[in-house]
Design a binder for these strands. Structure first.
Lengths: 130, 130
DNA sequence: CAGTATCCGACTGGATACTG
DNA sequence: CAGTATCCAGTCGGATACTG
């Protein structure tokens, strides 16, 4: 079902229909929500990393937040945590195949966000309609 | 430039490159962030609406939040506010053409979110890789 | 009708210190 | 190395009341 066909106010659609079509979008946004999930996901898109490696690559993140967000992402099956029995212990994080399915989503957001930034910054002179 | 080509840790890419590729994604997410922007946008995708009409269609939203989010969306050129000189005053909100460009973005999020919800709910039995 | 003003609780995320 | 524990400030958003 397409968004455009899910009408909230027209004759033969209930508000329930509308809400149901919004819910999955919220689910998707939630996965990417917060200050750090996106940097972490993108960082892992380029290869498996260890905890401190990720921390180094994401300026400003604290151990606490990295730990918390990695746990969130793992709970959502987007990230895998592998413990290797060494001393001291080695933990490697990787995107699951499923995590990689986010790539087109992120790409769409990146493309839209790029033109949006240009527009808000006033660099695009196309008349803003009406 | 594709996300996949923007590497944070490899030889010929700087962290700056990586951050620059994340920024527009954050911009896009920010536009859709918060509890109510998405419902408002989707509501307006089906036609122009007046303030109280939107409020009626979005269960749970308060006047304060609706007012605030509409202002945000207007500042981002996604929503247009038209005042008609009547007594009492009539205000109509509509999505701009630009606002409608969000439709494919929302659609991608909706599709991904739908399968994600199924997966998290445990309805998909595809082995979660490794 | 179309909002604004005020108050307030809950949640997010930062700083710092500590642990197996 | 790979985290956890504690404390704390700022922000988000809800409830209620009020206005041109």
């Amino acid at each position: 079902m397409e968004i455009a066909e899910t009408n909230c106010s027209h004759k033969n659609h209930t508000q329930g229909d509308c809400i149901k079509s919004i819910l999955p979008v919220k689910d998707a946004l939630e996965v990417l929500s917060g200050k750090w999930k996106l940097p972490i996901i993108i960082s892992l898109m380029f290869g498996n990393k260890r905890f401190s490696q990720i921390a180094k690559e994401i300026p400003g993140i604290t151990d606490k937040m990295l730990s918390k967000e990695l746990r969130d992402l793992e709970a959502n099956c987007l990230v895998k945590r592998s413990v290797y029995d060494a001393i001291p212990v080695v933990v490697e994080y990787s995107l699951t195949d499923y995590g990689h399915t986010l790539k087109p989503v992120i790409e769409v957001l990146r493309v839209w966000g790029t033109t949006h930034r240009e527009r808000i910054m006033g660099r695009v002179e196309l008349a803003v309609q009406d």
